[in-house]
Design a binder for these strands. Structure first.
Length: 495
DNA sequence: GCGTGCGGGTAAA
DNA sequence: TTTACCCGCACGC
């Protein structure tokens, strides 16, 4: 374990974070001596430098459902997170996990996707928008410069991980294969006398009732919170697989009778009157009025990934007192800690971790003007490099995290400079060094590492946007998929 | 059909 | 001016 932890610790401090640069810089680090391993699930204010021949980096891949965002900058590709699609009821799957689908990137496809029913409870699906960056979606920036691909993420995903792209693609391809192979015998049976007993649609479901839990076939079982004993599914019976596949596929085309529910308050009782509902919640007035809903989802959020840190350090978070928040919608704590904008605008998750350390919540929309989130026609200005390196104090936090490495096969990149709460003014990360870069909610939101008993306030370094908790590299890329193995299943392609 | 990248355009702050 | 976001288009798989 020590060796493993050490390896992860080495990866934790990405090379990109060691160097001081910002995606908006007019001049990027030239010919980096090292490159980072590709991180499929970047989270937090992280930066990576990938090799120019890194295929995944070239494709700007991400486990998160990122869509292209026009920043009117041809040199820097900006992508924003779409969030995750979940069951509106927050139904629990047999394994205790939650439905966490990957939002379709295409707007049209996404709208279509949201009209589908939960494969588990047939309730409506809901898109949980990402609000991890001061109330706005987490943004990722890609920039090709020389022989390196620079990546910078801004924001902390405040939602569970969706199904990764690779998983989605694998599942879709599997579905196609299975569909092709399944319908052949199906047609044969229809022609056979004994097969004509029930061939209509309703009968179809009756046939496959034992498998009417297609949630097993399209589930992200809590990516950051592996359920012991059921990391993946085993289906010795391939026929059952096929049947379920078809079922799920058909279900996906069924418009549920209760496609939407009429009570938006269920999303966030504390912010029911908020006019800051995400744009993607244009139809948020159709939310299931299910008293369990909020609890379930709050629980899900706590259990899953209410932040990158929990995702990577979930066990640690419990060990250090976050678990009591489980199941608590957090209204009281919201009151105690104020309304964190990023959370207040998105009522889905328990905002406790991000809020816990907020002191003066913004009464209204976040001070976005002080947060550089895009690269729109950036007016470049030279700025002095930071005096300190990012990882100077990493060791300290690493020690804090030492107890949680076993929690997940992901790596942690902790950049404690951002843990410095008072240091909400950063200069290094800003392309304009002379311009104080205030990091309002988003920076504070990631200070959820502070509950550690060994809590210490690392000396401020620089670059408030450099705090990083990233299940990066092989840990997330391989371990996550392998662990969860949701794509091993067969499910509705529409999901 | 969908993902992806690009770019025009608009609204809000 | 900055930023987010909508939309359409083209291209590739």
């Amino acid at each position: 374990m020590p060796a493993e932890a050490g390896q992860k610790a080495d990866c934790a401090c990405s090379y990109g974070m060691k160097l001081s640069w910002d995606i908006n810089d007019p001049q990027m680090p030239q010919e980096p001596a090292h490159f980072d391993r590709f991180c499929e699930w970047p989270d937090g204010y992280v930066r990576f430098i990938y090799r120019g021949d890194e295929k995944k980096a070239q494709r700007h891949l991400s486990g998160w459902a990122m869509r292209n965002t026009n920043n009117h900058n041809g040199h820097i590709l900006k992508k924003s997170c779409l969030g995750v699609v979940v069951c509106a009821r927050g139904c629990a799957l047999p394994d205790g996990s939650r439905l966490q689908l990957r939002p379709a990137i295409c707007d049209k496809a996404r709208m279509k996707q949201q009209k589908k029913a939960c494969p588990n409870c047939h309730a409506a699906l809901e898109l949980i928008p990402c609000r991890g960056h001061s109330g706005y979606p987490v943004t990722n920036f890609w920039r090709l410069d020389g022989n390196a691909i620079f990546f910078q993420a801004k924001g902390v995903h405040d939602h569970p991980r969706p199904e990764s792209k690779s998983e989605t693609e694998a599942r879709r391809s599997a579905i196609k294969r299975q569909m092709a192979s399944f319908y052949q015998p199906q047609k044969k049976r229809i022609r056979e006398p004994e097969a004509g007993e029930n061939q209509d649609d309703s009968g179809h479901f009756d046939h496959i009732h034992p498998l009417e839990n297609p949630e097993e076939f399209d589930i992200i079982p809590d990516p950051g919170f592996p359920v012991p004993g059921q990391p993946c599914f085993s289906f010795p019976n391939s026929d059952a697989y096929k049947a379920t596949c078809d079922l799920a596929t058909f279900q996906g085309d069924i418009v549920p009778p209760f496609q939407k529910y009429p009570n938006p308050r269920i999303y966030c009782p504390g912010y029911a009157n908020s006019s800051l509902y995400p744009a993607l919640y244009k139809d948020s007035n159709n939310i299931p009025n299910d008293t369990d809903w909020l609890h379930l989802n709050a629980l899900q959020y706590d259990v899953n990934s209410y932040s990158s840190f929990e995702r990577s350090c979930d066990f640690t978070s419990k060990q250090h007192g976050w678990k009591p928040a489980l199941g608590k919608p957090g209204l009281g704590e919201r009151t105690d800690h104020g309304q964190f904008q990023a959370v207040a605008t998105r009522p889905y998750f328990n905002p406790e971790p991000p809020c816990r350390y907020l002191t003066t919540p913004p009464p209204g929309p976040p001070a976005l003007q002080t947060v550089i989130t895009t690269t729109t026609k950036v007016s470049y200005q030279a700025y002095p490099p930071p005096a300190l390196k990012y990882c100077d104090t990493v060791r300290e936090v690493k020690s804090l995290l030492g107890c949680n490495y076993a929690s997940e096969n992901t790596q942690l990149s902790i950049y404690p400079e951002a843990l410095d709460l008072p240091a909400t003014v950063a200069t290094a990360a800003s392309p304009t060094g002379s311009l104080p870069l205030k990091i309002p909610g988003d920076c504070r939101a990631i200070r959820h590492t502070l509950p550690f008993p060994q809590e210490s306030v690392p000396s401020r370094v620089d670059g408030a946007e450099t705090w990083d908790v990233c299940p990066s590299g092989l840990g997330s890329t391989t371990g996550y998929s392998d662990r969860d193995s949701p794509f091993l299943s067969y499910d509705n392609e529409d999901f």
